[in-house]
C-alpha cells in the first residue's frame, strides 16, 4: 500500500530559526532518508518552496480559477512530502512519526488511490 505523507508545519516559526537549527533539521531529514531508503519503503519525496509561492487551482462551472496561496488558510503549511510503500497503516504511521517535521508540525497520512 502506498501512502503520501504530507509534512505540515508553521513556516513563520521556522523563519525564526538560526542557521544551526536549519542545519540540524536538514541533518534529521538526511538521516530519515537514509534509514527509510535502506528499509526500502521510500518511493519519493521533495521539499517544497514556501506556501507564499503556492497557487491553488479550482475549477468551478467549467471555469479554471487559479488563486494565490495554499488551499487551506491554516497556521500550518505543507512543506514537503514523501511517498512510501508500507504494508499497512500502522507501518505508515510509524514511518511518519520518524519524519523530523513530526516533532514541531504534523504529518498527514493519505492512502494513495491506486488506479
Amino acid at each position: 500500500m502506498r501512502y503520501l505523507l504530507l509534512i505540515a508545519d508553521d513556516e513563520a516559526m521556522r523563519a525564526g530559526w538560526t542557521p544551526e537549527d536549519d542545519a540540524a533539521m536538514l541533518a534529521g531529514y538526511d538521516a530519515f532518508g537514509n534509514e527509510m531508503g535502506q528499509r526500502g519503503v521510500l518511493r519519493g519525496g521533495e521539499r517544497l518552496r514556501p506556501a507564499s509561492d503556492a497557487t491553488t487551482v479550482r475549477v468551478r462551472n467549467g471555469e479554471t480559477l487559479a488563486s494565490d496561496g495554499p488551499f487551506a488558510e491554516t497556521k500550518e503549511q505543507i512543506g514537503g512530502y514523501f511517498v512510501v510503500d508500507c504494508k499497512d497503516l500502522d507501518e505508515a504511521i510509524e514511518v511518519a512519526s520518524k519524519i523530523p517535521g513530526a516533532k514541531h508540525g504534523s504529518i498527514e497520512v493519505r492512502p494513495i488511490w491506486e488506479m
Binding site: M1, D88, L89, D90
Partner: peptide, 14 residues
C-alpha cells in the same frame, strides 16, 4: 479497507 488499517494484534512496541 482504504487506509489498510491492519487486522491484527499490534506488535509489542505498539
Amino acid at each position: 479497507r482504504n487506509a489498510a488499517i491492519p487486522y491484527r494484534v499490534p506488535p509489542a512496541h505498539m
